[in-house]
Computed example of a mutant assay.
Amino acid sequence: MDIDVWGLALQAVNVLILIWLLSRVFWRPVAAAIAKRQQAATAIIEAAHAVQARADAALAEVTQAREGIAAERVALLDAARQEAEAATQSALTEARARAEEILTRARASIERETEAARQANAEQARELALQIASRLLQQLQGREIQAAFVARLKDAIAALPEKDRATLAKDPKGVRVVTASDPEDLRPAIEKTLRKALGDQVRLHFVTDPGLVAGIELHGDHFALRNSWQDDLQQVRKVLQDAE
């Protein structure tokens, strides 16, 4: 088989010339167009990525905002619930305090009224007992009772300080001898007892006071010597009052 060397060489030269022409005339514009298209595609892809990123960011913001709104709603509801519970508890506490205050005042008022009623009843009972005792003692008046009061009067005068006896004896207006009723036949004995105790110069004035019930008392302008059942009843009344 014969090989045409010159033909092969010519073909090779033609191929090289074709390649050079293609690279010069056709390949560079095509390559530039392809590069431009690649750049445009890259820009579009990057823009799409940027838009996607912005969309993702916006979606994240919306999601976060929604979560924040939900959390805020929950917080507001919880705060409202706590405030309502606190208001309810405060109202209950205030109501209990007012009720307790009303009950305390009511108890205090009842106790005061009960104590006042008890004291009033005790006072009425005491006065009634003293009135009964006074009426009974009035029925016991007699010579023996008056004689006993004369003896008590003598002892009471003897127990006075010397200065008081002298003042009583020297009173220019005299001494009022107060009895529940007219002593009648006991008057001489009373005068004798008083003059012996106070001196003959004493001036005696006999007066009656049924309120004494029974007894003999000496009264001056600035002095009183108590010696009667009325005074005894007053002492009993004071003891009963102090005992309450």
Rank of each mutant, 00 (worst) to 15 (best):
I132Q: 14
V74N: 05
R112A: 11
T114K: 10
R81I: 05
I110N: 08
E101W: 03
A125T: 05
V74Y: 05
N121L: 07
A97H: 05
I145P: 05
E61Y: 05
A125L: 06
Q131G: 13
S134M: 14
A108T: 06
E61C: 06
I132K: 13
R107S: 09
E101H: 04
K154V: 15
T63L: 10
R118V: 08
A97N: 09
R126N: 10
T93N: 07
I102K: 06
G68L: 04
R98N: 07
D78Q: 15
E94G: 15
L103C: 11
L76I: 13
Q82A: 15
A84Q: 14
Q141F: 12
R96C: 00
T63H: 07
A147I: 05
A122N: 11
K170V: 00
L103A: 15
R112C: 06
E144H: 09
A80C: 09
L137N: 13
T93S: 13
D78P: 01
T88N: 07
A125G: 01
Q139T: 12
Q82G: 03
E115H: 07
R135F: 07
I145G: 09
T88S: 11
A133Y: 02
A97R: 15
L128W: 14
E83Q: 12
K163D: 00
A156G: 03
V74W: 06
L140M: 15
A166D: 06
A122E: 15
A151L: 06
A95I: 03
R105N: 11
V62H: 07
R135S: 07
A70R: 03
L153R: 00
I69D: 01
G142F: 02
S90Q: 14
I110D: 08
E123W: 07
R112D: 11
L168C: 05
R107N: 10
L137H: 14
I145A: 10
L160K: 01
R165S: 03
R118S: 06
A133L: 08
A125D: 12
L160S: 03
R98Y: 01
S109Q: 13
L153V: 04
Q124E: 08
A99Q: 13
V150E: 09
E72G: 14
S90P: 02
I157Y: 03
S90V: 04
R135P: 03
S134I: 02
R135L: 10
R66H: 12
Q119A: 09
E123Y: 06
V74P: 01
T167L: 02
A97M: 04
T88H: 14
L168K: 00
K154P: 08
A151S: 07
R165Q: 09
A95P: 04
T63S: 14
E94M: 12
I102R: 15
L137V: 11
A79S: 12
I102A: 11
A71H: 11
A80D: 14
L160N: 01
A87V: 00
R152Q: 10
A133Q: 12
E113D: 10
A80R: 15
R81E: 12
R105E: 12
A97T: 08
L76M: 09
A60Q: 13
I145D: 12
I157C: 05
A79T: 13
I110M: 07
Q138A: 09
E162C: 00
T114C: 04
R118Y: 04
A108C: 03
A120R: 15
L130K: 04
A147L: 13
